[in-house]
């Protein structure tokens, strides 16, 4: 066990607005057990003093659930993209370096605009059409337990953006939708109701910025905090698009 330090030292990359230059500030807080990065930032918000005693604007960041299911607190912690709420202080190397999640435009300090994820989800039709708001006189669709277990892994995605931050093919100026929306295509295509729109989803990811733009660096699956098998989804979508292309070329069914 590492010796517990008596203080917590934070080095935070700050930025006052979307177009202003970033700068670094260091903060030292008293150590408390069971702190995570979000709770430390909350403590810092109460007394926003730099290590040399200057009073500054409190650090701005995004957080909500505190239990790694909402995905909003993702940031670069000691160089690794991960949710801040599940980053326990006593497991981190000090000084703890906090930077905004890369690849996404900075709004202020550690707060980024992650609407690119939503745009990607819209682009690939990552939802299921309801099969009628009336009684269809049919039993609910059945899913085999084995398939349910495999699909469940993808349903855990919380759109935190860590996979996109680590992806060398995703970023400003690139078309690539990124791993998270692709994994949702894998999930929705397997759903008993969602599979009716499978062709449309596959055609969407066969366009610019789709599956072809994946470079197979596979950083996504390494950094995903929910351990979603993103690269398996990409391989399965490779197979689905290959079959779809053959169907389009030679005629389906």
């Amino acid at each position: 066990m590492r010796e517990t330090p008596s203080t917590i030292e934070l080095r935070i990359r700050r930025q006052d607005g979307p177009d202003t230059p970033p700068y670094w500030e260091t903060f030292v807080l008293p150590h408390a057990p069971d702190h995570n990065v979000v709770s430390v930032l909350m403590a810092l918000r109460e007394h926003p003093l730099t290590h040399d005693g200057r009073r500054v604007d409190p650090v701005c960041w995004d957080h909500n659930c505190m239990e790694e299911v909402c995905g909003s607190c993702a940031m670069l912690i000691n160089g690794v993209p991960r949710p801040a709420c599940s980053a326990l202080i006593d497991q981190l190397e000090q000084p703890i370096v906090l930077e905004p999640l890369p690849k996404f435009p900075v709004v202020r300090d550690l707060l980024v605009d992650r609407s690119a994820i939503d745009a990607g989800l819209r682009k690939v039709h990552a939802w299921i059409e309801i099969d009628g708001a009336w009684d269809t006189h049919e039993p609910p669709p059945r899913i085999a337990p084995q398939q349910w277990a495999a699909d469940y892994l993808y349903s855990r995605c919380m759109s935190c953006g860590c996979c996109m931050a680590a992806c060398p093919q995703f970023g400003a100026g690139a078309d690539f939708v990124g791993p998270a929306p692709l994994a949702q295509v894998r999930l929705m295509n397997a759903h008993p109701t969602g599979r009716h729109d499978k062709t449309e989803r596959l055609h969407a990811i066969m366009a610019e910025g789709g599956l072809s733009d994946c470079g197979n660096a596979q950083n996504c699956v390494r950094v995903c905090p929910k351990a979603i098998p993103l690269t398996t989804a990409i391989g399965e979508l490779g197979r689905q698009t290959t079959i779809q292309a053959l169907k389009d070329l030679f005629g389906s069914s």
Binding site: T199, E200, L202, H203, A204, M206, A207, E208, G210, S212, D213, T241, Q244, A245, D248, L249
Partner: peptide, 16 residues
Amino acid sequence: GRTMTASIGNRHFVLR
């Protein structure tokens, strides 16, 4: 179909 073009008719996909 309305999205047919984004497949074998899509230059990007075919070139990749």
